[in-house]
Design a protein around this nucleic acid. Structure first.
Lengths: 136, 136
DNA sequence: TTAATACCCTATCGATTTGATAGACTATGC
DNA sequence: GCATAGTCTATCAAATCGATAGGGTATTAA
């Protein structure tokens, strides 16, 4: 299940991308427009800023804004930042690989085999979608 | 992330499918072979039995066994029984649909649009995999 | 018929995660 | 220097997860 953090983050990014200009937008405006708890959104936007997707400006007239063009923001990156691994199981994760302690052999593991396919199919989707695609 | 319940359930099903005959297999044997907590596995096998994938036999010589041929057991069914919805968000779920309370319009929701594609890609994988495919 | 076997069911428990809130701090612009 | 708006830390209730304990019940072999 998708976490609310990811859901809200996606909505916030989409909202920013939908605006014509790239002027800073206040947290409060985003929260209100997308029906999100403002304080919770604060921490999410902070994450997005620290990972380089958003810029911020303090003080009057401040807020958050997209750094890159929406068509250059891949969903693979967004999902990994917000949700973490795309794979459903660590042993098939590209960026967050971990060996399963209970599984003696990945090559013959039925779960591994199935989850590998699921990961690839999800990756394909995320790689073919940019932020610009989501707001069309 | 895939729950251990699903992971263990898949492993147990695979183990049963890998055996030549369809004689009842004791919980203890499955648990030992797959490195699973026996008590936890009990509840999982119970779920699988109640949903019609497994049969059980009590008393001496009892255990669990597959009811259908492995090639007739679709991963869509297995995943829905063990993990629940295949969709990452209720508003794109076929079997567990729920409206998002915060989202005013699904048609224009960017999250909805993305998650619909992810669901379809996962469904395609699960529909093309039977239990027989996993143990090849 | 009886006793062993093995599935069935309920309850509980600690750990972790999640979503949300509060409050103080800091930088900016007028 | 004061209002504005992002930044950071701490906390918290609720839910979920994985696991465990312990007794109940049906079946079978002897």
């Amino acid at each position: 299940m998708l976490s609310k953090k990811t859901k809200y983050g996606l909505k916030a990014l989409s909202y920013l991308a939908s605006l014509e200009d790239r002027q800073p937008v206040q947290i409060a405006e985003i929260a209100k427009h997308e029906n999100i708890s403002q304080k919770f959104l604060e921490s999410i936007l902070l994450t997005l800023r620290k990972s380089g997707l958003l810029g911020s400006k303090k003080g009057k007239g401040g807020g958050y804004y997209l750094i890159k063009d929406p068509k250059d923001i891949l969903m693979t990156d967004v999902m990994r930042i917000l949700e973490g691994p795309i794979a459903l199981v660590p042993c098939v994760s590209l960026n967050f690989y971990e060996k399963c302690e209970d599984c003696p052999d990945e090559a013959t593991c039925s779960v591994h085999k199935l989850m590998l396919q699921v990961r690839d199919s999800a990756l394909t989707v995320y790689r073919h979608n940019t932020l610009a695609d989501l707001i069309k």
